[in-house]
């Protein structure tokens, strides 16, 4: 595209926006509302996913050995460990030796009153309780991994929490479905409204488009000012809610964290910058995309001259 053509398209695009001021403002408002809702939604879903992810990381499977004594069966345990790690759904494993199990138990149950444990002397009541903690890549795969572990030789018991994993995984899926649904609806509404605005601009300039086509303008040349108009409306419409959301998010997170400090122990909100690092480009892209598609749809049938 020539620079003069680009300048022409931008000038005409701006002129169209000025000419249909009221509808342009209405479109900017609609896109702003769409992006605002999408933004709120995005912030909620990402935070929710973040919290679920954190919770998922806590979900592990514990595997106990038939011969659980570390001192006697270390080599056997290592061999089993290699087999577990070979499973593609397993992210990592952590070995807890018999001694570590006992130390941990003592820490939890006797706390500072270590003298209570002294009665055991050098005996380790958990001598047979070495274990692996298995971390999963995806908690959806928990039941598969559990049956895999149960099938291994030398395994006495497999401990896991089925209901927690299922609930979290269902929550994750539900959030995914709802977000896709809402995003599709909002995008469709945005495209519909912007294409109506552009359509008004086109009907005003129908004669001009007809003349342009008859004197040899390419579709691309006729279309450019309208596409510029749509994309500009989209970008302005996206910028306003993004700026608003930035400040609102910061305020809300700050408020929630200061007012309900107890929440901090189990809920960890994503920091503003981390959310907006992704939300700003996505928001602008969505705004520009709605404008681009909306203007293309509305001008298409007028080009058939």
């Amino acid at each position: 595209m020539r620079i003069s053509t680009l300048a022409y398209s931008i000038r005409q695009g701006l002129k169209n926006i000025r000419r249909n001021k009221l509808f342009s403002i209405a479109s900017i408002g609609t896109i702003a509302a769409c992006v605002f809702l999408l933004g709120i939604f995005y912030a909620i879903v990402t935070n929710f996913t973040h919290i679920v992810d954190n919770a998922e990381e806590q979900i592990t499977i514990t595997v106990f050995f038939t011969n659980g004594n570390t001192e006697e069966y270390k080599a056997e345990h290592e061999a089993i460990g290699e087999q577990i790690l070979a499973n593609p759904d397993v992210a990592d494993i952590k070995y807890t030796s018999s001694q570590e199990a006992w130390d941990e138990y003592k820490g939890v149950y006797f706390g500072e009153r270590e003298e209570l444990a002294e009665g055991f002397g050098d005996d380790n009541p958990l001598a047979n309780s070495a274990s692996y903690t298995v971390y999963l890549k995806d908690i959806d795969k928990q039941s598969e991994v559990v049956s895999f572990l149960k099938g291994l030789d030398g395994i006495r018991d497999v401990n896991y929490s089925e209901s927690t994993a299922e609930t979290l995984s269902d929550f994750g899926k539900l959030a995914g479905y709802i977000s896709v649904g809402i995003i599709i609806i909002l995008l469709a509404v945005g495209i519909f409204l912007i294409s109506n605005t552009i359509m008004i601009g086109i009907s005003v300039r129908k004669e001009e488009i007809g003349i342009m086509k008859l004197i040899g303008a390419t579709d691309y040349f006729v279309r450019s000012p309208f596409v510029v108009e749509g994309v500009l409306i989209g970008l302005v419409g996206a910028t306003i809610p993004l700026v608003l959301l930035y400040f609102i998010y910061e305020k809300i997170i700050g408020y929630v964290m200061s007012q309900f400090s107890t929440l901090q122990s189990f809920i960890d909100f994503l920091p503003t910058n981390q959310i907006f690092k992704i939300m700003i480009p996505i928001g602008l892209l969505i705004g520009a995309g709605i404008g681009f598609i909306g203007s293309k749809i509305s001008i298409r049938k007028h080009l058939r001259v």
């Binding site: 040899g216 303008a217 040349f221």
Partner: peptide, 23 residues
Amino acid sequence: RLLKDRNVYDNIAFAQKVIEKPN
């Protein structure tokens, strides 16, 4: 079929702009 919102010069220049002639 002239463009009513443009003067004589622009109406004629328009035909050249449409075919992307340099200014």
